[in-house]
Design a protein around this nucleic acid. Structure first.
Lengths: 202, 202
DNA sequence: TTATCAAGAACGAGCGTTCGTTTTCTTTTG
DNA sequence: CAAAAGAAAACGAACGCTCGTTCTTGATAA
């Protein structure tokens, strides 16, 4: 078996990451054993170790991948606004973002909220892991900030509103949605958005 | 060494729990070893095992203790309202709740946000743990619901607003604050509250 | 003395990882 | 074209280490 094309290499790595995600969703990062990853991936132990140096490297790869597209989905709201129309109200924006998480979950066949809770906990106790995740979090905050700036510009908020602080709150709403989804389980994008509308409406 | 009064027993258990919390704050639940707990508590392995059946029971005890007083702090906002005055605006309520978390952290000498992230992750992968935490989460939501009902009654929101959905959003804001505090670290109760004010203000 | 708790060395299970072997596919060569 | 040589991936049993837990021994108060 000669030559391993880079293409084949990344493909195998993806295969292993996908298997690991399935394990982590079920058992959490630490209860996930390499034996389980090996079994789930359909490869052998030795094979897995030719593509990753160890368990550590696999979960770090997961951290780097981030919440694919969430930032783009938020930025999409701004893009729609910049092309003439006004940006959607906050409730609609939050509904879009939370729905995006659910859609992505189904598309990937992975329970992303569960994975998210695992990565947050890992970030809290592994500085290296935190360093990989923080830019992702800041990116999402920055996307919300762009939205806030557009919304202020369009007169949806007071002119002297602070877009960074608005971004903090909008960013904060997402983890709250995810946690309640896992722990209580009754929260839907529509209900969450409706709650925000009621909170805002006078 | 005779008689172990129940009083002495619970005292020792508290001592062990406190030591465990210090370890978990530093290393997370799973990287926390019994050896570390033993060392941190100043007791011996055998001693620890006379007060807890095992590691499992210690972390479950932690889960049961919950976020002491957070629910009460929120209910306090409603109590103030029922005695004539109107309940505080949402931004002020959130500022109180987030500040309470910081105060409690300092009072206990423990980084509660870090612990919180650990417990959420554990709840996601251990159903028994989830069963212990879920009532706590529902209690906080219920407290926010009471607040929302009082605020609606006082005319702060539309009369047809749904208090449960408002509670979802207010409940969701707390994990978002905690996560950003740990991951980004620049969020203060005042800034967060100001962001909510800006979001609400037209 | 006796009942109880503290102590910490020892244990066994389970983990991540390694490494010698086998398989598989490409390349070389007659 | 065929077949053997070579090289790299796949394999999986085995290793060593760490962890949670136990258990024997010693200390202490009643």
């Amino acid at each position: 078996m000669p030559k391993v094309s880079d293409e084949h290499r990344t493909e195998k790595r993806q295969q292993i990451i996908a298997a690991t995600l399935r394990c982590v969703e079920r058992d959490g990062f630490h209860k996930t054993t390499m034996a389980a990853v090996v079994k789930e991936s359909g490869l052998s132990a030795g094979s897995v170790y030719t593509y990753f140096r160890g368990k550590h490297e696999i979960i770090h790869a997961i951290a780097s991948s981030g919440v694919t597209g969430l930032k783009d989905a938020i930025n999409g709201l701004v893009a729609a606004a910049s092309s003439g129309a006004a940006p959607p109200p906050p409730a609609r924006a939050i509904e879009t973002a939370t729905q995006h998480i659910l859609d992505l979950s189904e598309e990937l066949g992975i329970n992303l909220p569960r994975i998210a809770l695992q990565t947050w906990a890992e970030a809290a106790s592994d500085p290296e892991f935190l360093a990989l995740m923080a830019p992702e979090a800041r990116g999402i905050r920055a996307a919300w900030r762009s939205y806030a700036e557009a919304a202020i510009e369009a007169g949806q908020f007071r002119k002297d509103a602070d877009p960074e602080k608005i971004a903090m709150v909008l960013t904060g709403l997402l983890p709250g949605y995810i946690l309640q989804l896992v722990v209580i389980g009754d929260v839907t994008p529509k209900a969450y958005a409706a709650g925000l509308t009621d909170l805002l409406g006078r």
